[in-house]
Simulated assay, not measured.
Amino acid sequence: MTRRHDIDALRALAFALLILYHWGMLYVGDWGWHIKSTHTADWLQIPMLVVNRWRMSLIFLISGISSAFLMARTGGFAFLGQRTWRLLLPLVFGMLVIVPVQPYVQGIQTGFVKPGFFDFLFRYYEFKPWPKGAFDGDTNGITWNHLWYLAYVWAFTVALVLVKPLLDSRPGLRVRAAFTGLRGWALLLIPAIPIAIETVTLQGHFEDTGDLVHDGYRDVLYFTMFLYGFWLARSGGVWDELARLRRRALVAALLLFPVYYGLGVALPDDAPGAQQLIWALRSVYIWWAIAAVLGWSKAYLDRPFPWLGWATEAVFPWYVLHQSLIVLLAYWLVPLRLPAGIEASAVLIGTVAGCWIGFAIIRRVPLLRPLFGMKFRPRETRPTASTLRIAEPANELA
């Protein structure tokens, strides 16, 4: 079986969208973040919500796809060992070295931290709780901020290895066959049902803490998407069906979003069943949007683009670096009171340039590579597009 170029391309594009989303958080009105520009706009909430509802679910689904390919190559516990090294080392390094600028900047905004980054680091590395409200993760003394995804993927990897015997049992294989055998509107509706049930029953009981242990709703939702990806990975027929349904899924998602969003605005919060109805419709929207993305990707991205090898290798370092660069650039630029267009362009261009330069250095320094999720040494030779096979990706971010 030839390599699925569309999965590699989709992984790179999904994380590029994540970078743009975090850049947008600087400017969207009435949403809290580590630092906010003086040029915020409430109208940005709508396009941000269009993406927000499915962006991380898509990334976890891609993670499940990659996990299926990797596990088939290495086996369960060897796979877990590789993933532990490639996920937890960058997570710990990132928390200690890359992320601290974010709580530092946020702490200055909230007034709990005084200017002086090295003084902040001495206090930060004590790993003691900060005053409540100092920054995101203050009660733990240290935070992983945007790197929370790595902790969740590792936890899902452990869970996948543990439940693999059940998935490979006769009932488990029947469930998988039923899922990958869905066609037509059944493929667009049935996978949304577990998402809706999880949302209606769990979301109201859990805040989005991002701390894994107390994040019950997102734990269940994202593991479901991770499992969907694991099942979808090697099932060619369902991918062909997603490609066939791509227009239908896209139109359905675009029509459903204003309906569920409008109901959220119009219905009183205390109306009986209103919240549950909105959550259910949102769940269907999430799956339709993801189905559309997967279908269009299969139809148009399954080819060896010249940029694909570079992008596949760059994804992990760019992911680790990008949010700290956005926050740091905003910290320098926002006080200058530049026009909105100039400031926003400077933050985005500076972030892209910083990630580009950072990756150019990281990929050439063997000791840095594993700290950013890359293999210790680059491959000696690169296979040509015609000889690529489904194998271990250049990095294991997804």
Rank of each mutant, 00 (worst) to 15 (best):
T2H: 08
R3V: 01
D8V: 08
L10H: 06
L18E: 09
L20A: 15
H22D: 03
W23G: 06
W23L: 08
G24Q: 07
G29T: 02
H39F: 01
H39A: 02
M48Q: 11
V50C: 11
V51G: 10
S57I: 01
S57H: 07
L58C: 07
I62H: 11
S67A: 15
F69R: 12
F69C: 14
L70E: 06
R73A: 07
T74Y: 03
G76R: 15
L80A: 12
L80P: 07
Q82P: 00
T84D: 06
W85H: 09
R86D: 04
V92G: 09
V97L: 07
P100S: 02
V101P: 01
P103N: 09
P103H: 08
P103V: 03
Y104H: 07
V105K: 03
G107M: 03
G107L: 06
P115N: 10
G116E: 12
G116N: 14
F120Q: 13
L121A: 13
L121H: 10
F127S: 14
W130Q: 12
P131M: 13
G133S: 12
F135G: 02
D136H: 11
N140K: 09
L147H: 09
W148T: 14
Y149A: 04
Y152T: 05
V153H: 07
V153P: 05
A155M: 11
V163Q: 14
P165W: 00
L166H: 13
L167S: 03
L167K: 06
D168R: 12
P171K: 04
G172F: 00
R174M: 09
A177E: 11
A178Y: 05
L187Y: 02
L189H: 05
I195V: 15
I195N: 13
V200L: 09
L202N: 04
Q203D: 09
Q203Y: 03
E207I: 13
H214M: 11
H214P: 11
V220W: 05
F223E: 00
M225H: 13
Y228C: 06
F230S: 01
L232K: 10
D240R: 08
D240A: 12
R246W: 00
A249G: 14
A249P: 10
L256T: 06
L256D: 11
F257C: 01
Y260A: 02
Y260H: 14
G262W: 00
V265C: 00
A266V: 10
L267G: 14
D269R: 03
D269V: 02
A271V: 08
A271N: 10
L277A: 08
R282A: 08
W288I: 01
W288T: 03
A289C: 02
A289M: 10
A291Q: 04
A292M: 05
S297A: 13
R303A: 13
P304G: 08
P304M: 03
G309K: 02
W310P: 15
A314E: 04
Q323L: 03
Y331L: 07
W332E: 11
P335S: 02
L336V: 02
P339D: 06
P339T: 04
A340W: 05
I342N: 03
S345W: 02
L348E: 09
L348W: 05
I349L: 15
G350V: 14
G350W: 10
A353F: 03
G358Y: 01
V365F: 09
P370Q: 11
L371P: 04
L371R: 11
G373C: 04
S386M: 10
L388W: 06
A391H: 15
N395E: 12
N395V: 05
L397H: 06
